[in-house]
Design a protein around this nucleic acid. Sequence first.
DNA 1: CGATGCGTTGATCGGTATCAAGGGGGGTGG
DNA 2: CCACCCCCCTTGATACCGATCAACGCATCG
Lengths: 191, 191
Amino acid sequence: MVFREGDPALRAFSIVEGVVKLSRLLADGKQQVVGFRFPGDIIGFGTQRTYAFDAELLTAGHFCRIDRRKLDQLLRRYPLMERRLLDLCLQELASTQDHLVTVGRRSAESRVATFLLGLIEVHRRRAMPLAELPMPMTRSDIGDFLGLTLETVSRTFAAFKRQGIIAEPGQHKLRVLNSDALTRIAEGDAA
Amino acid sequence: MVFREGDPALRAFSIVEGVVKLSRLLADGKQQVVGFRFPGDIIGFGTQRTYAFDAELLTAGHFCRIDRRKLDQLLRRYPLMERRLLDLCLQELASTQDHLVTVGRRSAESRVATFLLGLIEVHRRRAMPLAELPMPMTRSDIGDFLGLTLETVSRTFAAFKRQGIIAEPGQHKLRVLNSDALTRIAEGDAA
DNA sequence: CGATGCGTTGATCGGTATCAAGGGGGGTGG
DNA sequence: CCACCCCCCTTGATACCGATCAACGCATCG
């Protein structure tokens, strides 16, 4: 765990290495994953007293820790930084809204396809090799992200493999063989 | 319409009067409502070139229009305002994440109950009379907000009325008779 | 007076959850 | 080094919730 929902928010973290799962716990023990974060992302920044969600490291990794008070000092000295944080926050808001659309209105197949396309996009933006993507999250994590059970996620992965759309050459490794098909499936079931 | 997704974002709006529905359009014509906004809220602020969603007025109302360029000037003059905007954005982010939890992991009954509790909360915070809340959104709007069909929303309202939990004394008017029951239903089906 | 939009209710279907059983891999301790 | 355990994944059978299809009532408006 990096930090937990409700902990006093004493510092922000810039991810140097590793993948982080952000999630909220429900009363009945279920969790909703609100997002995954990758190297270069900043988590836990903001102005609230406590963190709004759990952050858990899915792989080995390390951070650049940023003390909140020092951050505040920096912000006072360099007002432009505040603008950057606002940008960041707006981006997160937009992506959370996107995700809401996915979870609210799409079939299981379409959700999983959207998730996989997102993974590709993350790696493309970081100019990482696309042939074989690391995918450190478990079926259960993915299910909690997409609002599905882990069984449904597993079945959907199996179906995509049968159709030759993806392959899993090893544990937590993903190869995308037909991203056009994924795009089609993500956009709607027709076709 | 106040503005549409993709329009150049030339100004922000502070809602003086009225209820606004924020939504995104999907490829297949469906829409996902990402939130409702009420008097006192500010919409369309930010740093992006274009608006990230549609904004539609559900009732008569009017705004205080804020020119983007003037806003930028203000921000340069009063850096503290930027902090306020960041706060606002973080709050929206948190509420969108909450909503994601609702849509992703809950039953139809629980979603509707959560929606109604949210309505109450909005009015409580504005110190408005709670006996009879205005509820200008249609069943369809509510369905698109909660990731349900309008029929399911209608049936759930009917069930709540039968159980004496709510009443609708008129068009777009809501009376909550048993908010404890709503809280119980919202938290989980058990009980 | 017809048209249109919103709401209600009923019947049926299907997708996904749930329940269940078993396999495999990696880590730990004996 | 090996055996065991735990966690994750897979696959199957079944149930159920909510979507879909359909018909109708009611108000508002032209």
